[in-house]
Simulated scan of single mutants.
Amino acid sequence: MGQQGQSGQKGQAGQPALAEQAEQAEQSDQSRREVGSKRGRARLAGRYKVRGFSLGSLLIVILIVGGIVIPAVRAIPSLLEYFSIKRAISYAKQQASNKREVADYFAKQAQIDRITAVRSDDLDIHEDDNGTIRSVGFSYRNEVPLYGPLSLMITYSGTQY
């Protein structure tokens, strides 16, 4: 009985020691999890700080895009008129056989396409010695208003052979 009592006491005395060890192990596991989760958060936070636009950089990008897009959009009607002029000159050159006819055909086509930048008198019509139309050229400038006193000057020219 003495031995059992002693072993029982050892068991009871050993139980608090085991309980303390288990508690310490549990605390160290918790601290490891907290440190691991903090590291994970730090990694994620670092990742998100590197990526993306800040508000300032977004505003700068919008200003740059606006500075390029607005002048381009305002120049589109001028560019369309240029292509209409080229098409009208090509048509006039194909249909006409002398300078006067080229000017008349161009004037009619300009009226249809509402061309105001070039008149039939402004065309450079070149004939060869036989009276055949060799080339028809044109050149003009167009001013496109952008912002208040700021405008864009575009020079157009072309020759139809």
Score class of each variant (00 low, 15 high):
Asp104Trp: 12
Ser78Gly: 12
Arg141Trp: 04
Asp122Phe: 06
Ile133Pro: 06
Val102Cys: 02
Arg119Asn: 13
Ser151Trp: 00
Leu63Phe: 10
Leu150Arg: 11
Asp129Tyr: 14
Phe53Met: 08
Asp129Gln: 14
Phe106Val: 09
Ile64Met: 11
Ile89Ala: 11
Leu55Ser: 12
Gln109Thr: 12
Ile68Ala: 07
Asp128Phe: 04
Leu58Gly: 13
Leu59His: 01
Asp113His: 05
Phe83Asp: 15
Ile62His: 02
Leu55Trp: 04
Ser135Ile: 06
Ser97Leu: 15
Ser97Ala: 10
Asp121Gln: 15
Leu146Thr: 06
Ser78Lys: 02
Leu55Cys: 01
Gly67Leu: 01
Leu79Asn: 13
Arg134Met: 09
Ser151Tyr: 08
Ser97Ile: 15
Val102His: 00
Glu127Trp: 03
Tyr140His: 07
Gly67Arg: 05
Asp121Glu: 15
Leu123Thr: 08
Lys86Cys: 10
Leu63Ile: 13
Ile125His: 06
Ile115Thr: 08
Val136Asn: 07
Ser90Met: 10
Phe138Trp: 09
Met153Leu: 14
Leu79Ala: 13
Arg134His: 11
Val61Phe: 07
Ala75Thr: 10
Gln94Arg: 09
Leu152Ala: 03
Ala75Gly: 01
Asn142Tyr: 12
Ile62Val: 14
Ile62Trp: 05
Val118Ile: 08
His126Pro: 00
Ala117Lys: 02
Ala75Lys: 04
Arg74Ser: 09
Arg100Trp: 09
His126Glu: 14
Gly56Asn: 12
Gly137Thr: 01
Leu150Asp: 02
Ile133Phe: 00
Glu101Gly: 02
Leu152Thr: 03
Arg100Tyr: 13
Ser54Cys: 04
Pro71Arg: 04
Ala96Ser: 10
Val61Trp: 00
Leu55Gly: 09
Asn130Phe: 14
Ala88Pro: 11
Val102Pro: 05
